[in-house]
Amino acid sequence: MQILNHSQMLQEYFGIVKKPDQLIIALAGNLNVGKSTLFNSLTGLRQHTGNWPGKTVDNAQGSFSYRDKNFLMIDLPGTYSILAHTAEEEVARDFICFGHPDVTVIVLDATSLERNLNLALQVMEITSRLVICVNLIDEAKKKKISIDFITLEKELGVPVVATAARQGIGLNSLKESIYQVAIGSRELNPTQIKYSMEVENAVLKLLPQIEKFRFDKLFNPRWVALRLLDGDEKFIRNITLHLNSQSRWAVTREAEIAL
């Protein structure tokens, strides 16, 4: 079995070609939250579209630089959830989970934060390398909605940035936060969803079995347990598929971490 590095893994399993110095950013969010506007204003004309391997779902990629780093941003399909019931959700979920982006940015709609936080909380179970971008703050202001961003950031445990992408407001802070998370200079401690007792008990019952697989460095075992309990057939199928890629890549990853 051939050993892979991150670029090779991304290319082979996700059809994404990155330059050696580029850091990978995944851009996720609900539909109608101005995600494409944000993507366009960050990457400008340096974009191209492709297709996810084996899926009829578009894949837009764009690049930008900030300070001394170059970034390749992957615009994931807009979804309400990543519990994966549609091809779009599956693509978004698999990329965040198996593609190991350096940073995942979740775009939320300030005017319906409650529903949008649903997605954010789901993603926070998978990865901790997150930036939460609360977009459309101008619309929220018009609707007299005020958001306490300091408390929100404290509660979430990851950087929160307020933006109005159409007006270009907050884009620099967003880049700064992405940069900090990418180079690891921010302490990240994403809050975890508190489930009802019955769910927690079921997770506890399943965890010892999952820990046998020793993939705790790749995925959050708790999250894997939840997916299994949810009876998520697609995830179970995909984890089988990706375990191969993940183990081929893990060797390089372990070596990199050791250095």
Binding site: L113, L121, I145, E155, Y195, L229, D230
Partner: peptide
């Protein structure tokens, strides 16, 4: 076979609690 539903509801309940803590709707 209701654990899936409970998971979905629990996530939303968390989101709801959080939103209540940080969002203020002015008179509109």
């Amino acid at each position: 076979n209701i654990i899936g539903d409970t998971i979905v509801s629990d996530i939303f309940n968390n989101a709801e609690k959080l939103a209540h803590k940080v969002v203020r709707q002015g008179s509109y």
